[in-house]
Design a protein around this nucleic acid. Structure first.
Length: 698
RNA sequence: GGGCCCGUAGCUCAGCGGUGAGAGCAGGGGACUCAUACUCCCUUGGUCGUAGGUUCGAAUCCUACCGGGCCUACCA
């Protein structure tokens, strides 16, 4: 059967946020999308794969401020890191843009104008907490305080985790901005909203009948949003905000979720412009585009809402092409649980690449992805077993055990009788292709492995090693058997090429040249030379996985620094305790447990320590509170501690102390140390062995 | 609080109304020795989360509950 008619397919993966590094969870989507794209190209279709960094919003602004540099410096650095990570996993975008681009600003303006023209934009006052010190409006999660109902301390601005009460951040007792430590105040701000209710009819029609969404997603939307009037969508944020100022509304910026999806189009424009084309060839509805472009968005289930309601509403209003498919995947768990930094299962792409082969993870993900919304599990034992058994034991082994008999002679001139094995697998090609098309890569790999099983059974039955020993009389027969085996192997690699591009390339080097078309699975190759066999896939060594997990842990327990030796090494340190320890600094007034609870003491790990040359007493420390939480803290311990010796050790910090501008920079906390009692030293506190960064002192 | 998804052999999963519940891996037994201790043959193993219900018939549909994951909680 011939490949279906030529298609033009534009594929996007969700834009990763420029506030964090790529991890194994992200990679599910980028690998899934990459496989789909490579499959389409192998089938002879025109398929472009676009993505970009999502750069705007409060989080980036806050981060840049904390690091004392500009937002564009922050996002440039993260972009480089993202690109390196994707390249490492053979994720091959045709273009990787940025939402912070001229193209995106212009396109946001175009879509915005169409929303204005349709009369969908309205202004409305919004009451919001404002941080007077940081000078920004605060989302609820940036406010913490004491629950007004049960008085649990340190609760988020919208609900209490202890008693379940929900409230407005303004109701909190002692509200505190997590950005600056300042007390927020309620302020009123003008926001711009897009009315969605006028598009309710369109959205119902599109979500329920277009075929773009899986039935369960359509049902979810119908049951949760489309039954009642759609609320207006708040699409602006008041200055200061890192993003694009709205042209006809000075002082207002597009909310990050407005300009992010437009980034898909902006990436198209940049890609097309570099080739003398235009984005309209892909996004313009109708027109002279032939055939019309398909738009496939791959996203995680967490952002379903934006891609199935807001985004189609924007496209519809602007008269642009609606998504052909919104393909939604679940989340990644590791060993059956949510990824955990403490367990070493929150693994960054870069960390993985330092330990293991990206092809192994691509294969494992492919074997797990079924195209539906379920979460997938990366079971590390299963990962090693599956990759080693399938890829190495079954597939590569086919070539490994037979190719060398063809090194001198090359493939037989005509394809021998193989009992119908090649034809059988060729016939399976349609089913395998259908599975790829549905993003049911798990089914595809199952079908492919079945072919590999049949091929190995063939080799076993023919016993070519006996033919090799039987002498010249059996040479022709040996060559035939090896020709069959190598053909079956290459056929399997054609099917796996979307998943394993490097294996495909190396197989091409071994025999037959580069694999360029799915149709190469339909006809055996004959009469061609066979290169000396080289290993095509590495086994996954469980020890490497263990090393990876260990490297991913924020603080390997075995490497936890031991507490520094006490100043007195006497056999009976008790005897040297000062007689009047409290004389120099009498006890402070009594306080309540609630008073104590206001001070958030955390275990932190010192990541970097350096002298501040101009300062008499200060060291500049960078500490980690676990995960991505980093703080710069100036500590008055210079002269008592060698900076180099501090790196890696655990200390206690006051984590919610209001940041303080010091002569040498902003200090975002305080490292707790003991001093006084008539002695001169300053002594850092260390938790017992096993404590982890981020633990709170209670 | 609301909602979504999942719960099938030790592990990872398929099957999603109809002949006696399947695959791969792991385990057990044999064979082979070409191959990255690899492959081939045979084989052990399941109250299909629990309890009800619908049906001639349910792992498959419905309800409740239990367990796991996730999204939300008036910026949805």
């Amino acid at each position: 059967m011939a490949v279906s008619p030529h298609r033009r397919i534009l594929v996007t993966a969700a834009l990763p946020y420029a506030n964090g590094h790529i991890h194994l969870g992200h990679l599910v989507e980028y690998v899934q999308t990459d496989i789909f794209v490579r499959f389409q190209r192998l089938r002879g279709h025109e398929c472009i794969y676009l993505c970009a960094d999502d750069t705007h919003g409060t989080a980036i602004m806050i981060r840049a401020r904390a690091e004392g540099r500009g937002e564009r410096e922050v996002i440039a650095e993260m972009r480089a890191a993202h690109l390196a990570d994707f390249a490492g996993f053979h994720v091959g975008f045709d273009h990787y843009g940025s939402t912070d681009s001229a193209a995106n600003r212009r396109l946001c303006g175009e879509i915005w104008r169409s929303l204005r023209d349709r009369g969908l934009v309205v202004n409305r006052e919004v009451q919001q907490l404002f941080d007077p010190k940081a000078g920004v409006f605060l989302a609820d999660r940036f406010v913490r305080g004491t629950c007004p109902r049960c008085h649990a301390a340190d609760q988020y601005g919208d609900a209490c985790e202890k008693c379940g009460a929900t409230y407005s951040p303004a109701d909190l007792v002692d509200p505190v901005s997590t950005l600056s430590g300042a007390t927020p105040e309620v302020r009123s701000a003008d926001h711009l909203f897009v009315q969605l209710e006028p598009l309710q009819g369109f959205l119902r029609e599109w979500t329920q009948t277009s075929g773009s969404l899986a039935p369960q997603v359509a049902n979810y939307l119908a049951g949760n949003f489309l039954g009642e009037p759609l609320r207006d969508w708040d699409v602006s944020r008041p200055a200061p905000y890192f993003g694009f100022e709205i042209p006809d509304a000075p002082g207002h910026f597009w909310y990050v979720w407005f300009d992010a999806p437009v980034g898909y189009i902006a990436a198209t424009e940049e890609w097309a412009a570099a080739r003398g084309g235009t984005w309209r060839a892909w996004w313009q509805r109708g027109g002279a585009n032939a055939p019309p472009a398909e738009i496939h968005h791959f996203i995680g289930k967490d952002i379903t809402y934006f891609h199935t309601l807001f985004w189609p509403a924007m496209l519809e209003t602007a008269g642009l092409t609606l998504p052909t498919k919104v393909r939604i995947h679940g989340f990644l768990t590791v060993n059956g649980e949510k990824m955990s930094k403490a367990r070493g299962t929150f693994v960054l792409a870069r960390t993985y690449l330092e330990h293991l082969d990206p092809a192994a993870l691509r294969y494992y993900y492919a074997a797990k992805l079924s195209g539906d919304i379920d979460d997938i599990d990366l079971n590390l034992d299963d990962f090693a077993a599956k990759v080693n058994s399938d890829l190495v034991g079954k597939v590569v082994n086919l070539a490994s055990r037979t190719a060398r008999w063809l090194e001198g002679t090359g493939l037989a001139a005509t394809y021998p009788d193989d009992g119908g094995l090649f034809a059988r697998a060729a016939a399976d090609g349609d089913g395998i292709a259908a599975a790829y098309e549905d993003c049911d890569f798990a089914r595809a790999t199952r079908l492919i492995m079945a072919a590999a099983d049949r091929a190995n059974a063939y080799v076993d039955a023919e016993q070519p090693w006996k033919l090799a020993k039987a002498g010249p009389d059996s040479a022709a027969r040996l060559r035939d058997v090896a020709t069959v085996a190598v053909n079956l192997f290459r056929q399997i690699v054609v099917y796996l090429a979307p998943v394993l591009p490097t294996l495909a390339a190396e197989t091409g080097d071994l025999v037959g040249g580069p694999i360029r078309s799915w149709d190469e699975s339909r006809e055996p190759i004959v009469g061609l030379p066979v290169a000396p066999f080289k290993p095509l896939a590495a086994r996954v060594d469980p020890a490497r996985i263990a090393a990876l997990v260990e490297a991913a842990k924020p603080s390997p327990p075995v490497a936890a620094p031991t507490p520094p030796a006490p100043p007195s090494t006497g056999a009976a340190p008790m005897m040297s305790d000062p007689a009047e320890p409290l004389a120099a600094e009498p006890l402070a007034a009594q306080c309540t447990i609630d008073d104590f609870a206001k001070v958030d003491l955390r275990v932190a790990r010192i990541l970097a320590a350096e002298e501040v040359p101009e300062a008499k007493k200060l060291l500049r420390l960078t500490v980690s509170l676990g995960g991505e939480e980093r703080r710069t803290v100036f500590a008055g311990i210079k002269g008592f501690h060698d900076p180099a010796a501090l790196v890696g050790r655990l200390v206690v910090v006051v984590a919610n102390l209001a940041p303080r501008q010091m002569k040498f920079g902003l200090s975002e906390g305080m490292v707790v140390a003991a001093s006084g009692a008539g002695a001169t030293g300053v002594y850092l506190l260390s938790p017992d062995s096993g404590a982890l960064p981020g633990m709170r002192l209670h």
